[in-house]
Amino acid sequence: MKKRGTWLEYKVTDLAPVYVNEFLIQTAGASKGVIHHYRKANGLKVNGTILSAENPLVHNGDIVSLEVFKAEKNDIVSEFMELDILFEDDHIIAINKPAGMKTHPNSPGETGTLANALAFYYMMQGEDAAVRHVHRLDEDTSGAILFAKHALAQAIMDKALQEHFISRTYVAAVQGVPRPKKGTISQPIGKDRHHPSKRRVSTGGQPAVTHYEMVQSSSSGAVLKVQLETGRTHQIRVHLSYIGNPIIGDRLYGDPSHLIERQALHAAHIRFHHPITNEKIDLTAPFPADMKRWEP
C-alpha cells in the first residue's frame, strides 16, 4: 500500500485473478458500502482508469487506487481549543478528551465540543477532512477517544468496534466494594421512561456487557478497571449503579460528592489494530487532576 497524492494505491499480488471489489474487501478491509462510496465520487481506479459500475478482474501487478484523501466538506463549526493528542497519522487521530466537553454537537451550529476543536485543528493543519468519531464518551467522562480521518478508516474501525476488536479500559472510582471483586455484568439497557436523559437496566433494552475488576479499595469505596464489550449509552454508569456500586460523583445514577464535581470515570487505555497498516496500537490517556487520587 502506498500513498500517492490524495490516493491510496494497492498492488495486486497473490490473490489474482480476482474481481476488484473482492480484492478491496480482502486486501484493504473495505466494506461494500465504502467501495460504493468511492465509486460514486469517481474515487476508484484500476491502472489509472476510473471505474463507475464495472467490477473487472484484476491481475498480478495491477494497481487498484482509492481516493481516500479527497477534500471533504465539514459541516461542524471550527473552534479553537487545545487538544491533547495521543496518536495521529494520515488515517486516524486519538485524543485525550477532558471532562465537561461533549464528543460532538447535537444540533447544527453548536460549539464547545471536541468535534469543533478537531475541525479547527484540521483546518490549521491544512487537512480537508470531515470529523468522524469512531466511538463516544459522555460529556463528563475524560479519556481516550478515536476519530477516523477518511471513510475507509472509519468503515474498518466501525467494524472492529462492532466485532469487539477495539479494547477500551476505563478506571472508575465507586461507592462501596463490589461483590464479587471481579465479574461480568450482562444486563440489557434501555431508556428510562420517567427521565428523558437517563438509561436503566430493562428486559426490553439492548444487550450490554461490562467486565470489571477491583484494583484497590478503602473504607469509602473502590477503584475498578472496567472493560466494555458493548457500547450502550451510559453503560458503565448504569451497570455499576445496578450492582449497588454507583460511580463517585455521578449525579444521575448515584450521588454528588465533595471529592469530585463529575462522575469519577476515565477512559484510560485503548488498544486496536491500525485500520490501514494493521500495526498494533496501545494508547494510554494521562489521568486528569481531579482523578489523580484514584490512579492505579
Rank of each mutant, 00 (worst) to 15 (best):
E67H: 10
L152M: 11
H273N: 14
L44D: 05
Q263V: 07
P56E: 03
D89T: 13
G176V: 02
V68M: 02
T230L: 05
G231D: 03
A53K: 15
N245D: 00
P180N: 04
T6A: 09
Y38H: 14
A151Y: 01
H104V: 14
P108Q: 12
I248E: 01
H274W: 07
E127T: 12
G176L: 07
I35P: 08
G176Y: 05
K280W: 03
K159T: 12
S78P: 10
T230R: 01
E295G: 00
V201I: 15
I93G: 02
H37Y: 15
A129M: 11
V226R: 03
I93S: 03
P296R: 04
A115M: 09
Q263W: 07
E261G: 14
T6P: 04
S219V: 15
H150D: 07
R232W: 08
S257H: 05
D140T: 04
G176Q: 04
I50L: 13
Y19H: 12
P17T: 10
F147I: 03
H36Q: 15
I145M: 05
H195I: 10
Y121C: 02
K45F: 11
G176R: 01
R293D: 06
Q187E: 14
A222F: 08
K97A: 11
H239R: 05
K198F: 12
P296F: 14
G231T: 04
R271A: 13
N55F: 07
S78L: 00
A129F: 15
A268S: 14
M1Y: 01
N60Y: 11
R199Y: 13
E22Y: 05
D140L: 06
D158S: 14
H211P: 04
L252I: 13
S218A: 12
V226E: 01
R193Q: 09
E261H: 15
F287M: 13
R232E: 06
I63S: 07
Q175P: 00
A130N: 13
V34K: 07
T233V: 02
T103N: 08
T277H: 06
N42P: 06
L228D: 04
E213H: 07
A41I: 11
Q154K: 08
L152D: 09
P98F: 11
T6L: 08
T284G: 00
K45P: 03
I189Y: 02
T203W: 06
L265H: 10
D282F: 02
M123H: 13
E9C: 07
G112S: 14
H195D: 15
K97G: 08
Q125V: 03
H164S: 10
T230K: 00
A119Q: 09
F120C: 11
G204Q: 12
P207N: 12
A285H: 02
K292R: 11
I63F: 04
Q154S: 10
N55E: 05
P180H: 10
L240Q: 06
L15M: 10
H36I: 10
A30Y: 06
K280S: 14
L161R: 14
A222P: 06
L118Y: 03
V201R: 09
H195G: 12
T111R: 13
Y242L: 00
L252S: 01
S107N: 13
K3R: 14
D75R: 07
I260M: 09
Q263D: 04
A144G: 03
K11F: 06
S241T: 01
E9V: 04
I145Y: 01
D282L: 01
A208P: 08
Q216K: 15
A99K: 11
V18Q: 05
A151G: 00
D255G: 00
L137I: 12
A41P: 00
V46M: 10
